[in-house]
Design a protein around this nucleic acid. Structure first.
Ligand SMILES: [Mn+2]
Ligand SMILES: [Mn+2]
Ligand SMILES: [Mn+2]
Ligand SMILES: [Mn+2]
Lengths: 159, 159
DNA sequence: CATAATTGTTAGCCAAGGCTAAACTGTTTG
DNA sequence: CAAACAGTTTAGCCTTGGCTAACAATTATG
């Protein structure tokens, strides 16, 4: 009894240009995004800790809370997770430090973040917008796209 | 007692180019991303339902589960939420439909998704990668950047 | 038309990532 | 050096978005 699809199913779609992708491919799209979301926040923390260490010499939980606009309790809980993941080391009430694995992740994330940010600026997006967009986009850009973005930015600079 | 920052704090950063943004601006970056994450999944559902209605004439929970690679229970729960948000209407065991608000959201999301996808292809990213990247990126692209992407794609086509 | 297969729902579990309130530690300062 | 202040942690709560298992309804088929 498909009593309600009578009007919609008969007429052809207005523009045949973009059909639905095959189910498997479509599923990969969504699964990849869900996957990225699992590591996204961790990458942002590690990247920020790396930046604080480089630019400030220390990374305090309070700084992270302020920069992320999140409560100190939230940061504290996350630091426990990062510890369990062996990305940071921390003695109670002291500055944080990155493990080897943490430093590696921080560098990778920072590099990717910078490529996206510089690309957006090269495209003509104004700095404050580019920073906001890059913060979210960075986690969803494949290596292939990243390489293309980097080339684009370089060519723009040698205009 | 900053006993451990001795090596890190003294030497200047290798490249002074990218300093930390001011705290307030930095906080806006992260908060905007958190915000996008709240609506992201809802947009994907509504968009997919709209696409299924357009291309298939009906939108069944099982189709959504298959396309999203997620259990039927997960879809069922989400549909309850979409109902509460008055984005979809559904009678049990029947196809889903979009409310006015749902249709509006579907169109907006679809348009944005397409702009990002077409932009990536215009940049030179291969289709399968572009689809994956667009699925995640779309939720983090500002109107400003979106407009620039659209212009870029058009110019590329009138090459 | 009875039964099998498909589809949908419900219940109950879990982890992640937020929050507030309260307790605790470390630092500054009168 | 005692108190006040700033920073950190813990406890306990909430929502979101997954899952599996069990059950219910619909649809297809022998
Ligand atoms: Mn980043
Ligand atoms: Mn980020
Ligand atoms: Mn989309
Ligand atoms: Mn999406």
């Amino acid at each position: 009894m498909t009593d309600s699809n009578s009007q919609a199913s008969s007429s052809a779609p207005s523009i045949p240009g973009d059909a639905l992708p095959p189910v498997e491919q479509h599923a990969v799209q969504y699964a990849t995004v869900r996957n990225a979301h699992e590591t996204e926040l961790i990458e942002d923390y590690v990247e920020l800790i790396g930046d604080l260490l480089k630019h400030r010499g220390e990374a305090r939980a309070a700084d992270i809370a302020n920069r992320m606009a999140v409560s100190q309790a939230t940061v504290s809980k996350m630091i426990r997770r990062l510890n369990e993941l062996e990305l940071v080391t921390s003695k109670p009430y002291r500055s944080l430090f990155l493990t080897e694995a943490g430093q590696k992740m921080a560098e990778t994330s920072r590099a990717r973040h910078d490529i996206v940010l510089h690309f957006l600026r090269a495209l003509g997006v104004k700095d404050s917008t580019a920073r906001i967009d890059a913060e979210g986009m960075e986690h969803h850009v494949s290596d292939e796209t990243l390489a293309i973005m980097q080339r684009f930015t370089e060519q723009q600079q040698n205009s």
